[in-house]
Amino acid sequence: MTSITIRELRADDIDEFCRFLTVNFYGHEPVLQTPGDHKIVTDTPEKRETRLAIIRQGLSLVAVDSSNEGRIVGIAYAEEMVPNDLEINWNKVNEKKPKSFLDHVHLFLSGVEIRSKFFERFEASKALFLNILTVDATVCNQGIGRRLVAALIELGRSKGFPLIAVSCTSLYSTRVMSALGMSCVHSENYLDFKDEDGNVVLKPPAPHTSVNLMAMKL
């Protein structure tokens, strides 16, 4: 543990960052473990452009292992969000009928976020929104995720954010956020989300049964 430190995620980390997401986020995110051949493309020029724009905000953190040439072992990928962003995201995913599995995931999560009304609940005009928290499987259960979020909370305070929020798609991340003082302001069960034919779309493995919008004043 003493060899693992937290620092800002930088633009020059982009190659390692994208590889890390492919293996540790796309490979282990509960929602994405829904049975089926979903053919998810994890890295494209468009995705990189979006990721770089968010990274350049200076609000994302990584855990690195100094005993292993500074290898990234955890990420807290976050951005500034304002109320209008929720509307833009919601309108964007509703412009067309969902075709791919990821289309359904984005529709579900953007709906959860807008229905949570977390900006209104906390009377905040902006928030530090944690998009992705993931840790390398080789260093799980060492408290790295909690360290990343704790550092992100302090970063948010230092930047003057009045609120931090995150959509927790796993039971484990929900527990981490709760232990750090966040509260659940909205929750929706995966089995309640169905396509237009009435089929359940999201079937993550147990014990992950719902997404929980967690938030806290800073």
Rank of each mutant, 00 (worst) to 15 (best):
I4Y: 05
I6K: 06
R7Y: 04
R10P: 08
I14V: 13
E16T: 06
E16W: 03
C18G: 02
C18K: 13
T22V: 11
V23A: 13
Y26T: 03
P30I: 11
L32M: 12
T34Y: 07
P35I: 12
I40N: 13
E46G: 01
R48D: 10
R56H: 08
L59M: 07
A63T: 08
A63R: 07
N68C: 13
E69L: 10
G70A: 11
G74L: 09
I75P: 02
E80K: 07
M81F: 04
P83V: 08
D85H: 10
E87R: 15
W90I: 02
W90Y: 15
H106G: 00
L107K: 13
F108Q: 07
F118P: 04
F122N: 10
A124H: 00
A124V: 02
K126V: 01
L130Y: 04
I132P: 00
T134V: 12
T138H: 09
N141R: 15
Q142I: 00
G145F: 01
R146T: 11
R147S: 11
R147H: 07
L152K: 03
E154V: 05
S158W: 09
C168H: 03
L171F: 12
S173D: 13
V185F: 06
S187C: 14
E188A: 09
D192I: 08
F193M: 06
L202F: 07
N212K: 10
M214R: 05
M216W: 04
K217T: 12
